[in-house]
Amino acid sequence: MSRKIVRIAVPVLVLLFLYVPILILALYSFTDATQIGAIRSFTLKNYVTLFSTEELRSMIVGTILLALGAALLATILGTLGAIGSFYSRKRTSSAIATVNQIPVINADVVTGFSLCILLVVVFGVSKDSYIPLVVGHVTLCAPFVYLSVIPKLKQMDSSLYEAAMDLGATPAQALFRVVIPQILGGMVSGFSLAVTLSLDDYFIATYTKPATFDTISTYVVNATRGSQTDIKTALWALSTLIFVLVIVIVGVMNFNSGRAQKKEAEKA
């Protein structure tokens, strides 16, 4: 009996530990409280502020555009790298795999700071341009795209590319009509991973962003230090929205993969 209690209690405690803070934030985002404490009344004021303040709106749109752009570039580069490495000789390909691991393991602070030095100090790229920021986020994301594409290539029947060539396709046609469709799943999950990483990033952005631009992360850090309470509470609303969005995306993805697995099972 006591065993059964433990078996249920432990996961419940872990889940509470993970989700209670977010739920508290979500709850407070619907109140007029200026700090976590006594709740006087419920209101949607924070959501109105979030969408009516020009500064907040442009910051959110900018962050999303940055994430999508950087993820797109990272997906192209990461996929090219994976294909190149897959068709290289063994030694070359394991060298590429090792080099690819470094940005994954390396601390973001180091990546951000060193990129800043390289681009701004060494190459003299203007600190006001978006180039260092985009380069920084692509550097952050591309290795993860590589890591999610490589397994798909390994699963693929290696004679497919040759079969396409054999039927008259040029190498480029074989790549786009046969190889890419086979690894598309890996590219899509690499892309979504890249979007999340870019949205999440704080360190690289602080070192590489132009002074006039803020991502959600850098903005939140600055705003929590500031004194504008209505902006601070609007950020609770933003956090809640992001959380809901993530839950919806994860739910849809799980539903889809469940259906795909069922389909596979039916075929077999």
Partner: peptide, 9 residues
């Protein structure tokens, strides 16, 4: 060519 493991797309 007809491949050993068919190599159908």
């Amino acid at each position: 060519t007809v491949f050993q493991r068919y190599a159908l797309f």
